[in-house]
Design a protein around this nucleic acid. Structure first.
Lengths: 229, 229
DNA sequence: TCAAAAGTGTTAACCATACACCCATGC
DNA sequence: GCATGGGTGTATGGTTAACACTTTTGA
């Protein structure tokens, strides 16, 4: 079967930069390509957009197929359309970035023959296509957005300690934060719920576990409140 | 001539939300469509992406063809890909927003049989396709971006008064600003050059004309300076 | 001389920053 | 008892916000 058009059309793909945080550093999900071009190379998860699905649906489908990930935070990043970014011919890619809670999605199972794995953001292998550039843009966006939108919580388990949260911010922003000032500020917003629970199985004083109060945030947001770190 | 592919492909277009400021309010450039669908309706300038041009080049070409505008500030906004946004069939549109200095581009001459005109952002006619939504997204982006990037100057003539600048910010942000605090803050940044000139032909005390110091901004930016209103 | 907008400082409240020690727990 | 991270308050400097009158100019 074939499809014919009066004028030529670029191919349309989606790609995703999936971030996760393991209490040490930021990770990015990569897929090892089985086919040419760039066979054997690592690349961002992604693929062609079907005719009847939204762009976001296409990303979610590809993430599911290639890595088993479902139900993640997803936001459009940028559309890359340089004429020569794909050696097979003109291909425009709408890139998204995703944030996942590592604990919820420990297993990355690949449906295809491809391999999927987490890599530290600071130590990625060479990537296929212009994917290095896409990762760079995503990193910058995350860095900018984390400061004035409460998206950091998407990278932590539902219940987390203040130290985990601080460490996440320090990692994303690439600078140290003062412990007392950080706690003061974040607690003053009143958006964290003290679950009453504490850490288990740690070999030192156990920290309290907090949860982000999504509902309260949405209510405050409507009233003009601005989250800011 | 026809083009055939193994799998179906969406059509790919670009659209632009072009903003201008006339010392009263924000304007948006619209084109009256000559052809179906939506013949006679107003729409954003835009059109199909050619196979050998970048997305940005496509926007610039369309702006030139449809309105005569050249050499404008342009930034990618968002990509709209709902399956039914175009009645002719699946069409994905990469939207950009542009900022132009009205004075530099007073004339909007249309090459096609189409009509081009400026409309107040707050009083747009019904638009074709999902262009109302695109304008809304662009307005929000402009509102957010103007506060921490010196893009407001793209909407003013090269030489402007502090009142013009303040009025622009008040219009974009939709809230009044204190005159003394505004001047103090903006002058403290040291990014405005006093041209030594003053307004001409005004029936009251003439204001000094300032210019934005692009070079100094770029130098400061590299050293970690953050513009902020 | 009137109308219209330009230009100009001070004070008080708030917010960001810097900084060091004791506490609880498991080994 | 020691190693590890948890938890806590204050003082200072800087930033923002509120606020009203005089000056210049052309009509």
């Amino acid at each position: 079967m074939a499809y014919t058009y009066e004028y030529p059309r670029p191919a349309l793909t989606v790609d995703a930069v999936v971030f996760a945080f393991d209490d040490q550093d930021l990770k990015v999900l990569l897929i090892q390509r089985a086919l040419a071009p760039f066979a054997g190379k690592w690349a961002l998860p992604g693929g062609f957009v079907h005719m009847d699905e939204t762009l976001e649906a296409a990303v979610r489908r590809e993430l599911k197929e290639e890595s088993g990930l479902g139900n993640v935070f997803l936001e459009q990043l940028y559309t890359f359309g340089e004429p020569n970014r794909d050696p097979r011919g003109r291909t425009v890619s709408v890139a998204y970035y995703a944030l996942v809670k590592l604990a919820d999605h420990q297993l990355v199972a690949s449906t295809d023959a491809k391999d999927a794995a987490w890599f530290p953001l600071t130590d990625l292998p060479p990537l296929a296509f212009d994917h290095e550039r896409i990762v760079k843009v995503a990193r910058r966006r995350l860095q900018g957005k984390v400061r004035y939108q409460p998206i950091g919580f998407e990278l932590l388990p539902k219940k987390f300690t203040l130290s985990q949260l601080q460490h996440l911010y320090e990692t994303v922003l690439e600078r140290p934060l003062d412990k007392r000032n950080f706690r003061k500020k974040i607690l003053a917003m009143g958006l964290l719920i003290d679950t009453g629970e504490i850490q288990q199985d740690v070999s030192h004083r156990a920290a309290r576990l907090f949860a982000f109060d999504q509902k309260k945030y949405q209510a405050l947001e409507k009233k003009g409140f601005n989250f800011e770190i």
